[in-house]
Nucleic acid binder design. Structure first.
Length: 530
RNA sequence: GACCGGUUCGUCUAGGGGUCUAGGACACCGCCCUUUCACGGCGGCAACACGGGUUCAAAUCCCGUACCGGUUACCA
């Protein structure tokens, strides 16, 4: 039998980080065993479900590249089937009509109300002591026919236990006594979650249900429904939860955008990096390795590697440097710095495009992309031999673009850095970081005249490549009896607007002779300073 | 309250009775490299929740306690 799993989010918000991981694990398992990964939108709570949310969830999945098989199922389309199932159970005496008037929906905090009531009922109430449970079927029919509203509840057997072997949590047993006669159909005819899930999973032929641990007790209720319906329950695998730094629930209300998948997409994260991070939250291949490609994750995925304890998603709300989990940030930087250049290029292109920094000249002309890369980036920027310099691409060309991306990515964390910190490489219109101006320019007033003077030296140069640049700048620093670093850092600030970056010689060379000269002479940074 | 689950460095984790003076990663802190730096290299700090057993031997097995989480809806 081929494995069929599903990811079944309810569209009441964007794709939450925990849901994203659930989707990932479903996907990994399906691909690992050659099964199908299906998608179902659980939109039966009309009041809370929105189309926008559905779109956002789909966007998130698409971004993570978790492609689903077959058509998306919308649970609301199946309401009639759910009702029919409830009616069938009613007809078979496996469910009953509850004529108890619907209770007033509690105050603001539903959960607290539930806990409160549970405490109050402590030891008194049998979970199945409903007065209508054993109502004579004829009476029941008569009252229903008279138009009296009723809910349909499952008639949970008196004695026995539900048992299943959870693929993560192991053997799970629960006394029927601990499960109430759950409502299948609301008095307004609306099918409820547990019924809908079971019916849909049966209809979709789901063999393995992989979802958050918050559904562990639902599994028992659902098994009861499967039993009543006479259908063999699927396998269950529950995943540990992802918690907030205070070990509480991670929610949009409390934690805001950090939990949304779109935040990461918009912040310049690579899907591959984020997937990698997500996979390691609650799962381990049992080896000392952190970086896994999707293919490796698929290959190594197993339920044995999944934890039983919840994981904390660590971040500091008011600290920009740690706005999200440090490891996620590191992972993304690691990908940007080390992934094959040809895979990174399209992302940089998209980023530059959206920042209006992309130029058609960066487009490869005729040459295959890989060919270009081989000629410019096999050698790391730091140990590029002199011979390479001969081929140094001209600014504005595709080769230059490739060369530049490879040079500047070494200190970048997100795709956004290419259009922000790296803006000066692609545009004449860039800002100066006040801290950099303060640190590298304002402190050394002499640079105000020295840097334009250095520009004059550059202008006199024939070839503008690292070795020549180096001797010119060194001679200049000696002449001015100052430290080379002062000149270099001042120039860096003028040329790039920021205080950090690759080797300054490489920066000069990459920015190019003409632009370097112009920028060294510019007064803009000085005027922007304090 | 009841039922269910969990508890190894700040965080993610390795660990399935001896190889554990508990390993890796991130973060943090030093040092080195360097013209600077958020790259890189080297190093440091830092954990088996607690109490009882079982055993020659326990982070690993059993029991209890504490704490944390989930569920307990005519929500999903």
């Amino acid at each position: 039998m081929t494995v069929r799993v599903r990811f079944a989010p309810s569209p009441t918000g964007y794709l939450h980080i925990g849901s994203a991981r659930t989707a990932l694990f479903n996907y990994l398992y399906a691909r690992n065993v050659g099964g199908k990964f299906l998608l179902r939108i659980e939109d039966t709570d009309l009041a809370r479900s929105t189309e926008e949310s559905t779109r956002s969830i789909l966007d998130g999945l698409k971004w993570l590249e978790l492609d689903h098989d077959e058509e998306i199922v919308f649970q609301s389309d199946n309401a009639d089937k759910h009702r029919a199932a409830a009616l069938k159970l009613l007809a078979e005496g496996k469910a009953y009509r509850d004529f108890t008037p619907r209770a007033e929906p509690g105050g603001q905090n539903v959960k607290e109300g539930i806990a409160e009531r549970a405490r109050a009922n402590q030891g008194v109430r049998n979970m199945r002591d409903n007065e209508y449970r054993e109502l004579d079927p004829d009476d029941s029919d008569a009252r229903a026919a008279a138009g009296e509203p009723f809910a349909i509840r499952l008639k949970v057997p008196l004695d026995g236990i539900t048992v299943f072997e959870d693929k993560v949590y192991g053997l799970q047993e629960r006394n029927y006594d601990d499960t109430e006669d759950l409502v299948l159909l609301r008095s307004d005819g609306h099918p409820l979650y547990n019924l809908a899930v079971v019916c849909d999973d049966i209809e979709m032929g789901i063999t393995d249900v992989i979802r958050g641990q918050d559904h562990l007790t639902n599994a028992h209720k659902q098994i009861l429904i499967y039993n009543s319906l006479g259908v063999e329950p699927p396998n269950f695998a529950h995943l540990p939860l992802i918690l907030a730094p205070n070990k509480g629930k991670l929610s949009k209300r409390k934690h805001g955008e950090v939990v949304s998948m779109t935040t990461y997409r918009d912040a310049g994260f690579l899907a591959a990096a984020f997937r990698n991070f997500l996979a390691l939250l609650g799962w381990s291949a049992g080896e000392e390795k952190e970086i896994y490609s999707l293919e490796e994750l698929v290959e190594k995925f197993s339920f044995e590697g999944i934890h039983r304890s919840n994981a904390v998603f660590n971040f500091k709300e008011n600290d920009p440097r740690h706005w999200t989990d440090d490891k996620a940030q590191w992972m993304n930087a690691e990908y940007i710095r080390t992934m094959p250049l040809e895979e990174l290029l399209p992302f940089v292109k998209a980023e530059l495009k959206s920042a209006k920094l992309w130029r058609e000249e960066y487009e490869p002309e005729g040459r295959a992309l890989s060919e270009t890369i081989a000629s410019t980036s096999d050698v790391g920027p730091d140990e590029r031999p002199a011979a390479m310099a001969i081929d140094l691409p001209e600014h504005g060309s595709h080769d230059w673009f490739v060369h530049t991306v490879d040079l500047i990515r070494q200190r970048f964390f997100t795709l956004k850095d290419f259009s922000r910190q790296g803006r000066a490489y692609f545009s004449e219109d860039y800002d100066f970081d006040p801290a950099a101006v303060e640190k590298n320019l304002s402190k050394f007033p002499d640079l105000r005249s020295w840097l334009p003077e250095l520009a004059d030296r550059f202008e006199a140069m024939g070839s503008f490549m690292e070795p020549e640049i180096e001797s010119v700048v060194k001679a200049f620093a000696e002449e001015k009896a100052t430290k080379l670093g002062i000149i270099m850092n001042g120039a860096r600030t003028l040329l790039t607007g920021v205080a950090v970056g690759p080797s300054m010689l490489a920066v000069f060379e990459t920015i190019g002779q003409e632009r370097s000269i112009r920028r060294l002479r510019s007064r803009m940074a000085w005027n922007s300073g304090v």
